[in-house]
């Protein structure tokens, strides 16, 4: 399989397959920023550091991908991803597994690794009974 290098910038310790949700947070105004950036997206101060965040989120939408531009990912199709309103504030796109959560349902978000070893956001239904049949 060809390699797929995705620079998500998410912090995940070398040698570990999963970890808690860490996002950039401002030491000045405490706003959480995502996607990663250089200055606080709220107060523009240079005081961001990666801090643990609540792992809760609400599923805004999902899509089942049947097409990928990267050969390394094409073998895994279909791939299910979702957009999530994080309790910490920002909206994030994450892999969704199991893939059958309903829009509006609660999800739990952690940092894991994709098949190529890149650190990525992964979401799973918080209450499995909210899964669609």
């Amino acid at each position: 399989m060809s390699e797929f290098i995705a620079n998500t910038q998410l912090p995940l310790a070398v040698g570990t397959d999963s970890g808690p949700l860490l996002l950039q947070q401002c030491g000045e105004c405490h706003a959480v920023s995502y996607p990663p950036r250089e200055l606080c997206g709220h107060c523009l101060v240079d005081a961001l550091s990666w801090q643990p965040q609540p792992d809760a989120g609400q599923l805004l939408a999902t899509t089942t991908l049947h097409h990928s531009l990267e050969p390394a990912l094409q073998q895994q199709l279909p791939i299910v991803i979702g957009s999530i309103k994080l309790a910490a504030g920002p909206v994030a796109i994450a892999y969704l597994s199991p893939p059958s959560a309903a829009i509006g349902s609660a999800v739990t978000v952690t940092i894991g690794r994709d098949s190529a070893g890149n650190p990525v956001l992964q979401a799973r239904p918080t209450n499995p009974q909210e899964q669609q049949p």
């Binding site: 996607p35 990663p36 991908l65 991803i81 957009s83 796109i93 829009i103």
Partner: peptide, 28 residues
Amino acid sequence: SFSNAAAYPYGAAGPNAPFALITAAYME
């Protein structure tokens, strides 16, 4: 930079991915 870090890594679907999500939310 935002797309590279927070969209493309999730299936490398290009613009189809975010627009599929917007479409799904609009339909719902």
